[in-house]
C-alpha cells in the first residue's frame, strides 16, 4: 500500500508532455528562434569591406528602405505573388474538386492524389531546370506553335521572362494548394450537397453557396504556403528570368555574397515583417488547429 502521497495526475501528465516536447523545442529554439534573434540583432550592426562589428545603427534599415531598388523589387515580388496565387488557387481548387467530388472510388481517389503529390517529393531545382528545353528558342513549345501556324517566328518571351517565372512558380507550388483544399473537401458532408440539390440548387449554385464557403479554410492554408514560398524565393526568379528580374530573396542573397551581413539582416527583417503581416491578415480567416 502506498503511503507517500501520489503526485497529482494532472501535474504528472503535464510533466510527461513537457519531457516529450523538449527535444523539438530545443531544435526550434536553437535553429529557429536564436537565428531570428541573431538576425534582428545583427541588423543594427555596422560593417565594412572585410568584417562586421557590434554597433547600434539604423543605417542598414535607412539604406534598405530608402533605396528605389527595394521598392521596385517588392512591387515586382508582389506581382509574382498575386499572379502565382491566382493560378495556384484556380488550378488547386479545380483539381481538388475533381478528386473529391467527381472521382467516386476511394482507391482511385488515393492513387490520383498520389500522382499529384509525388513531384512534391522530388527536387525543385530539377523541376525548374526541366522547363528550359521546353520553353527555349528552339524548345518544344516554340516548335509546336510554329508547326501549328500560330506564329512564324519563335516567341522570345517564353523563357527568361516574367511569364517563365510565374509558370515555374505555379508548377512548383500548385501542390501546396491541391493538398489542403482536397483535405478540407474530403471532410465536407456529402449529404449537404444532396440537400442543396434536393432543394433545387443548380450545380453552379451548389459550388458557390455550399462547396466554396466550406472549403475556405483549405484555400487559406494553401494561400499561406504559396504566398510565403514566393515571397521568400531565392532561386526561381533569378533562374527563370535569366537574371533580369529581381526578388527580395535575391537582394538578401546578393548582400550575403558581398559579405554585407548586417545589410542582409536588415533586409531579412523587413521581409519577415512583410510576410508576417500578410499571414496575419490571412490567418484572420482560418483556425489552423481545427483543420488538422
Amino acid at each position: 500500500m502506498k503511503t507517500r502521497k501520489a503526485l497529482d495526475p494532472d501535474k504528472r501528465s503535464e510533466r510527461v508532455s513537457w519531457a516529450l516536447v523538449t527535444p523539438l523545442t530545443l531544435v526550434l529554439g536553437f535553429f529557429l528562434l536564436a537565428p531570428i534573434a541573431t538576425i534582428v540583432t545583427v541588423s543594427f550592426w555596422g560593417y565594412n569591406e572585410w568584417s562586421f562589428y557590434p554597433d547600434f545603427t539604423f543605417d542598414n534599415y535607412l539604406f534598405h528602405l530608402t533605396s528605389a531598388v527595394t521598392w521596385a523589387t517588392y512591387l515586382k515580388t508582389l506581382k509574382f505573388v498575386v499572379l502565382t496565387w491566382v493560378f495556384c488557387a484556380v488550378i488547386g481548387f479545380t483539381v481538388a474538386y475533381f478528386l473529391a467530388f467527381h472521382v467516386q472510388s476511394l482507391p482511385v481517389q488515393i492513387a490520383l492524389f498520389l500522382v499529384c503529390t509525388i513531384p512534391f517529393w522530388t527536387s525543385n531545382i530539377i523541376r525548374m531546370i526541366s522547363w528550359i528545353p521546353f520553353l527555349g528558342r528552339n524548345g518544344l513549345a516554340n516548335s509546336a506553335l510554329i508547326s501549328l501556324g500560330v506564329t512564324d517566328e519563335p516567341l522570345e518571351w517564353l523563357l527568361y521572362s516574367d511569364f517563365a517565372v510565374v509558370l515555374a512558380f505555379v508548377h512548383l507550388y500548385a501542390l501546396f494548394m491541391v493538398v489542403p483544399i482536397f483535405n478540407t473537401m474530403m471532410r465536407i458532408d456529402k449529404s449537404l450537397v444532396e440537400a442543396a440539390r434536393d432543394a433545387g440548387a443548380t450545380g453552379f449554385q451548389i459550388l458557390m453557396n455550399v462547396i466554396i464557403p466550406l472549403t475556405k479554410p483549405g484555400i487559406m492554408i494553401g494561400s499561406i504556403f504559396v504566398v510565403t514560398l514566393v515571397m521568400g524565393d531565392v532561386i526561381t526568379v533569378r533562374h527563370m528570368s535569366g537574371g533580369q528580374s529581381a526578388s527580395v530573396g535575391r537582394i538578401i542573397s546578393n548582400e550575403i555574397s558581398l559579405l554585407q551581413y548586417p545589410a542582409a539582416a536588415a533586409s531579412s527583417v523587413v521581409l519577415l515583417v512583410t510576410v508576417l503581416l500578410m499571414i496575419g491578415i490571412m490567418m484572420r480567416f482560418v483556425n489552423i488547429r481545427k483543420e488538422l
Binding site: L24, L32, A34, I36, T38, I224, T228, I252, S253, L271
Partner: peptide, 21 residues
C-alpha cells in the same frame, strides 16, 4: 505557433541566421 512559424518563415532567413550564429 512556433511550429507553424517554422513552416512559414522564409528559408533564406533560417539559413542566414544559423550561418550568422
Amino acid at each position: 505557433y512556433l511550429i507553424i512559424a517554422s513552416l512559414i518563415i522564409p528559408s533564406i532567413l533560417v539559413s542566414l541566421g544559423v550561418g550568422l550564429i
